[in-house]
Simulated assay, not measured.
Amino acid sequence: MSATKRIIVFGGNGFVGSRICRAAVARNWDVTSISRSGEPHWSSVTSSASPPSWSNKVAWERGDIFRPAQWVSLLRGADYVVHSLGILLEADYKGVISGRESPFSGLAKAFNPAKGAHSPNPLERIREGEKEPIEPPPSASQLTYEMMNRDSAILLAKEAAREKVKAFGYMSAAGGAPVLPSRYISTKREAEAVVAREFPEMRGVFIRAPFMYDSSRKITVPLAALAMAGSVFNGLTGGVMKGFLGSAAAKPLKADQVADAMVEALSDESVAGPVEVQQLEELANRGWRKTML
């Protein structure tokens, strides 16, 4: 009998991260989630406020991604580490929705081209032996694409490689979108490139997910229909609008499928580098069949 695999999921309490934890539990893996708040607020990631039965098999740890001293010891002995953190907009969208901030100032923040533009690769800022290389932001509203989509992933990959983790999974994206600043996708591509280049001894798996939906988040269902229409249009026109549509030009997938694909990709040593939408479907189907056996 093979030894139980051990996986650490950063952002395991989120929409996709929680599903990655669920998929890993279905494989009978040893699963640990690390996030600032610990266990998910289940009503925000599923259709129920009650914890699902599988959640009892996950160790829900608290830790700040930008403070490695809080979590680095948990990486020891791990087979796989997953980065499932990120932001869609830099603006404090919760503040906009609640009325604490005007929509105009919120959008101005989100599309400010200078925000974070001079934030260098964190590896260039890390001195040998320094434990806290990046100063954590005092609030979520001050997070930038560079910090969340790129720097936190590179920082985690650095520590995972140091602990000789076999594979590093990164939740990337198929593309940007007309409503998102270009830095949303450019920072993800930068993270992929740096991780692959700087840590070649650790297999990097970059899940380029399309738009993801689930009935527990009702707004995602009609948006997925629009994304599907964009995908069909892109196919019929030979990809003429792919650059403009971004991820909306790719076929949308259920969040559960993407999670299953991540876990299957990590377990398959032949999978490395960017994983595009068609391969995600194949991996998800293969992984689902394994859990049904």
Rank of each mutant, 00 (worst) to 15 (best):
A209H: 00
T220A: 10
R22S: 11
A265P: 02
K115S: 14
P222V: 08
D268H: 07
G129F: 04
S98R: 09
R203M: 06
M171K: 05
S270D: 11
R67H: 14
E201C: 07
T46G: 09
K94W: 13
D256C: 05
I65E: 06
A110E: 05
Y213F: 09
G38D: 06
K254H: 14
R22F: 15
M1R: 14
A117I: 15
G238F: 04
Y184N: 03
K131V: 12
R36F: 06
A114G: 11
A209Q: 00
L107I: 11
V271Q: 00
A78T: 06
R197M: 10
E135T: 04
I134S: 04
V195M: 10
E101T: 15
S18L: 00
K290P: 05
S43Y: 09
R289V: 01
V31S: 13
S33W: 07
A261S: 06
V72D: 06
T46R: 08
K251T: 15
G246E: 00
S247A: 12
Q70L: 11
A227M: 05
A91R: 06
P113A: 03
G14M: 01
M171A: 14
R162V: 04
D268C: 10
A193D: 15
E61D: 07
G38K: 13
W42N: 12
G116D: 03
A23K: 12
L266T: 03
L85T: 13
I185L: 08
R27K: 07
Y170V: 03
K57L: 02
N121R: 13
S44W: 12
T237H: 14
V194I: 13
R286W: 03
A173R: 11
W71Q: 12
K242L: 07
N121W: 08
A167N: 03
N285P: 03
V240F: 12
K188D: 00
G243H: 01
A224Q: 06
V16A: 03
Y145E: 04
V45G: 11
A196M: 07
A177M: 07
K109W: 08
A265T: 05
G95E: 11
M148F: 00
A196T: 15
M292K: 05
K164T: 02
G204P: 10
E163F: 01
A250F: 12
L266E: 02
M1F: 08
V263F: 01
A117Y: 10
G11V: 06
D151P: 11
S43G: 15
E130M: 13
G239I: 09
L245G: 01
G246F: 02
R27P: 04
Q257I: 06
F66I: 00
A26W: 09
I7M: 08
D151G: 07
K242M: 02
G106M: 11
S53T: 09
D92F: 07
I126N: 05
P103S: 07
E132L: 08
A284C: 07
G14A: 04
R22K: 15
S119T: 10
L75M: 12
G176N: 14
P103Y: 09
Q70E: 13
E124C: 02
T220C: 09
L107F: 14
A255E: 00
I8H: 00
P200G: 02
